[in-house]
Design a binder for these strands. Sequence first.
DNA 1: CCCTTTGTTGGTAGCGCTACCATGATTGCG
DNA 2: CGCAATCATGGTAGCGCTACCAACAAAGGG
Lengths: 344, 344
Amino acid sequence: MRPRSRRGGGRPTISDVARLAGVGAITVSRALRQPERVSESLRTQIERAVSELGYVPDPNARALASARAEVFGVLVPSLTNNVFAEVVRGIYDSLSDGPFRVQLGNTHYSGLEEERLLQVFLSQRPAALIVSGIDQTPTARRFLEEADCPVVQIMETGPDPIDMMVGFSHFDGGHAATAHMIEVGYRRIGFLGARMDPRSQRRLAGYRAAMEAAELYDPRLVTTTPVPSSVSLGRDLFRHALAKVPTLDGVFCNNDDLSLGVLFECHRASIEVPQTIGISGFNDLDMMQVAFPSVTSVRTPRYEIGRQAVAMAKAAISGTRPELLTVDLGYELKVRESTTRPKS
Amino acid sequence: MRPRSRRGGGRPTISDVARLAGVGAITVSRALRQPERVSESLRTQIERAVSELGYVPDPNARALASARAEVFGVLVPSLTNNVFAEVVRGIYDSLSDGPFRVQLGNTHYSGLEEERLLQVFLSQRPAALIVSGIDQTPTARRFLEEADCPVVQIMETGPDPIDMMVGFSHFDGGHAATAHMIEVGYRRIGFLGARMDPRSQRRLAGYRAAMEAAELYDPRLVTTTPVPSSVSLGRDLFRHALAKVPTLDGVFCNNDDLSLGVLFECHRASIEVPQTIGISGFNDLDMMQVAFPSVTSVRTPRYEIGRQAVAMAKAAISGTRPELLTVDLGYELKVRESTTRPKS
DNA sequence: CCCTTTGTTGGTAGCGCTACCATGATTGCG
DNA sequence: CGCAATCATGGTAGCGCTACCAACAAAGGG
């Protein structure tokens, strides 16, 4: 019975390389994955055969045989949100030099979607999983606990990690921005929040704690919506807040899209910033320091979170689990013109 | 000789399902992929067995056996650029309901990196490939021509497609914005360009054609840099341009990040927009219509490009190649306050 | 009533690779 | 100089799935 004609369209396989190099297939496999375990003479022969044939290993066959795909599964709630785009960039940049591929999933901020995607990812037996946030559903959490690969939760830190964690405290970030505004003299400071995912909630909690500590908290100062964040939404929320509380003298925005919308609306309505209204944002996008006036914001280590998550996962894969399983990369309050009142 | 202990950690396989349902493995395979070719009674039995065991097919085994992975390979030059983030979102959204995964590659605007990633992608035998732009290197082009799967070039259209194309004319977009500014009375209109990838070059060519047609072209009006675009770069380029040509009365920016930087710099330097300087951007990010003054921009169908590319690839996969292999989704000039002079 | 046609089901043999074990060669040691 | 320990290499048997073909039943057609 003749072998069926090559299904795969004639791409060279490992045994083609082995034949050309005059060695066993398994030796080629070893030469590619653990070159130091093959003698130098064979190794150069094999390398020559590989480049002559243009051989590229089939990752599917490799994954099937070794019960482990060289894939990092990455789950983020949004692809267009600048914050996650930066995180994802950090992940890609850290992975581009190695054998690992990235499998990106967009949960759209939905726990159910996260569960579904986790099942899909796990069916590939990934080398590591990186998930956003610490508020997984019980089912998702069980999937992650039972996955026999390193798991990194990113964006924030908290108690009871599934495995590893990289992030910072959104509560503290929200608290720091608010406390700063109070300190420079703002009193009726509003909170503008979009989406209100768990991290936004914690920023709000930080705001509230700071306001309560100064005996300035008033629930009417808080304006939130489940709608996704955007610059135009920032404008709308601000108008809303101002209508509700005409004595408003500052706003702390959930994120920088909103603060940009507030800034533009202030220009349009001839409201002086920072004299009449102080503005503080969150994340510190590049444009915040270019804006006029430049906008105070909480700088968050987005790119670095991606890098660090990959570094920790890689360490765990190679057997040397990092001693610190939870890494807090912190944040930095960038004070700028939008909260710098001439008079103190 | 006993079978070696399950390498894969005991996840159920297709034969576990087959045994439980009392059918052959191949029938389970068929029931999952072409349910209409299995009798209803068996199908329900199999479905019950699948959900009882929590069976999820192994995509690696599937890809190996069928010589075809259910993967869309997607190559973009940047992950953080808002434009590509939108395209990628369109792709993900169109693919989330089907069996296909996405394999995303970041070329960093490098032809060499594109070639390398193509090789990696092709080793998986993807179901389709989506690549950005029409200026592939000869090697990359050969890879794509020899790939036995649908190929879609996105972002722009042009002659000589590899297979299919979805995009719009960057030349025309640049031309339209410039012609509009000329029409409303601007004369010394500068061009600000960052990155200057091939699409930026074509926008510049459109600008130049419009300026030359009005006998307004002057090379000193053009300010470009290979540096990646950012809001702060917009500010810097504008300062530069103004120093070079103090009589500048308008700028057409390569993209909206730059135009935002220009707008902020005008605020800071108390330059009146649109009276003293007119501003026009490219891409029409959400914030352009919220800005004060709102900024004229060329709206580009980014999300739609992603959707359309996937739709065409899916059609080709299912055997019904679209009759139109090149789709021009057009653009739309959004005229706003930043180019609306009180006097005409 | 026999013979094709159509539809449903299953068996066999891989896909390309690596885990596991076996083999032989070399080394080190008493 | 014999024997265990170490090293380099290879053979075999799958990983979990599907392409291919065979088998059989049911349904028509003459």
